[in-house]
Amino acid sequence: MNVTLLFLAVIGAIIAWWMAGQRLTSKPWLEASPVQTATGLEDPPAPAIKIGLYVFLGVVGALFSLFISAYFMRMASSDWWGMPVPRLLWVNTALLATSSAALQWAKSEARHGRMGNLRPALVAGLLLAALFLAGQIEAWRDLNAAGYVLADNPANSFFYILTGLHGLHILGGLVVTGRTTVRAFAADIAPARLRLSVDLCTLYSHFMLAVWLILFALFAGWANDFVDLCRQLLS
């Protein structure tokens, strides 16, 4: 559970940092405020939906870090054989990274209000992410054909379950980004609302890219040396 505890420590640090700014040491019983100056929340709050996305990403992060914890704990048993990483995954990684970059481009175009460039950027991000998903499914089929089936070995099981879960999250992102793209093509655009949507899609896309990179490092075995090091430090 070390990975999960590490993740929770990061979340805890963020919460602690945020709470430090909330005057938790104030003495509320001494500060009844007169009519004119009701304190607190004077500056316009951040859009609720953005905070909502941050919290949601926290939940998704917890989900994946728990799976990764389980991965390492199961790995310790003797029936674990590593599985080869299909070449296709490199292509998929590149696709997902470009998709994320395209959305970043869309974000900056939206910020400057250039709708003409925003649309192709969004479509590019959408298509590349869809291609990534198709590529992942193709990788599954290759592996299956090569005899690396789900129930054969725990390494295989984890590969399918983790890529599947990540794929579902990408699919969810695709639906939302798709809706944003449709809105960008609509006749009556509300620029502020659209900018926020593009912002959030980009954030989500970057996060899922980061998750994928970690998973990829896990499957390729690069993370193992690092984990061994941590294990030695802990024991």
Binding site: L41, G52, F56, V59
Partner: peptide, 24 residues
């Protein structure tokens, strides 16, 4: 639950009445 939980957390963070600091 995750949907309802997101709603609770964000409501406490962003939907408080004016003057309702966390410590009130």
């Amino acid at each position: 639950f995750t949907m309802g939980g997101l709603n609770y957390v964000v409501t406490v963070l962003q939907g408080r009445a004016r003057g309702m600091t966390l410590m009130r």
